[in-house]
Design a protein around this nucleic acid. Structure first.
Length: 287
DNA sequence: ATCCAGGGCGGGT
DNA sequence: ACCCGCCCTGGA
């Protein structure tokens, strides 16, 4: 395939570092020039910011502009979102200023389900390593600029992995969860189509939680990062920490219940809680 | 060495 | 409904 290029001009809410390091994705890596290279779908792409321009370069199946508009959520006005959230309180305004270039990617559902099952009680470097090895072993090879990249395996491709294979890749106790989830989709006990066509967010969450390895937190990540539910508020240790510091002030943050946090997030951030979570998370982790 | 990292699960009250 | 211990692994 031919390399394509697309230049996005004057985009105020687009910082590669913010987008790729706010915790939503695992397959983008920083290059020596500060740009990021990653694989999504059957595309390999490099994203570089030069001044106010964003330069997308890579091999796409389809028109690169359309591919980028979809994946990078370019039709959504983050200016409006940020303005609305910034007015809620000073803390949020500060965190938004810190991560002003964040955008929520439109990620593949299957990849997101598996990736966040892997994230359970795990750290980011190890999650990335595991996913890399899975792609290398079960995905398709793509060559670009004399480098080899691998797509995320399809359901059929990943179904070739036994529990033992997965254990050897380093999945640990998550091996059976990934295997069982793959079998569920392979045998169509559940389908990606029925998930992406479900309109009711609560019903959707219930369906996701039926999957082995998907609990409340992982379900919320899938809802936010792939199914475009901006109102859900995934609570991990960092979010619990930052919410306690800003609003609750308990000595022991462990004692802050998830229920309490969900209620607070809904009251304060309403239908943009997921976006608020991203700005707060990124700020707390990086600053 | 012990602990922890972007939780989930199963078995208790 | 909450609560708790356990679960692989590897880096600090």
């Amino acid at each position: 395939m031919e390399e394509q290029q697309y230049i996005l001009k004057n985009c105020k809410s687009f910082e590669p570092k913010h987008i790729f390091e706010c915790g939503q994705c695992f397959r983008w890596n920083e290059q020596s020039d500060g740009s990021y290279t990653g694989v999504f779908g059957n595309n390999v792409m490099n994203v570089k910011k030069e001044g106010d321009n964003i330069i997308f370069k890579g091999i796409c199946n389809g028109n690169i502009k359309e591919v980028c508009e979809d994946y990078f959520d370019l039709k959504t006005s983050y200016e409006k979102i940020k303005e609305k959230l910034s007015n809620i309180d000073e803390y949020l305004a500060n965190s938004i200023n810190y991560g002003k270039g964040i955008r929520i990617l439109n990620q593949d559902l299957w990849e997101t389900i598996i990736s966040f099952e892997i994230s359970a009680n795990n750290n980011i470097p190890r999650i990335k390593g595991i996913i890399d090895r899975i792609c290398k072993k079960y995905g398709n090879e793509i060559t670009w600029n004399n480098e080899t990249y691998y797509t995320f395996p399809t359901i059929q491709q990943l179904s070739k992995a036994s529990i033992e294979d997965l254990r050897n890749i380093g999945l640990g106790f998550r091996d059976k969860r990934i295997y069982d989830t793959t079998q569920i989709f392979l045998t169509e006990k559940m389908t990606l189509e029925e998930l992406s066509s479900e309109k009711d967010t609560e019903k959707l969450r219930e369906k996701l939680i039926q999957l082995p390895g998907v609990g409340p937190k992982v379900a919320d990540c899938i809802l936010l990062f792939s199914l475009k539910r901006y109102e859900v508020f995934p609570i991990d240790v960092w979010v619990r920490r930052v919410m306690n510091e800003l609003y609750i002030h308990k000595e022991d943050e462990e004692k802050v219940s998830k229920k309490e946090l969900q209620k607070l997030a809904k009251e304060k951030y309403e239908n943009l809680a997921g976006l608020a979570q991203q700005y707060l998370f990124y700020w707390k982790r990086e600053a």
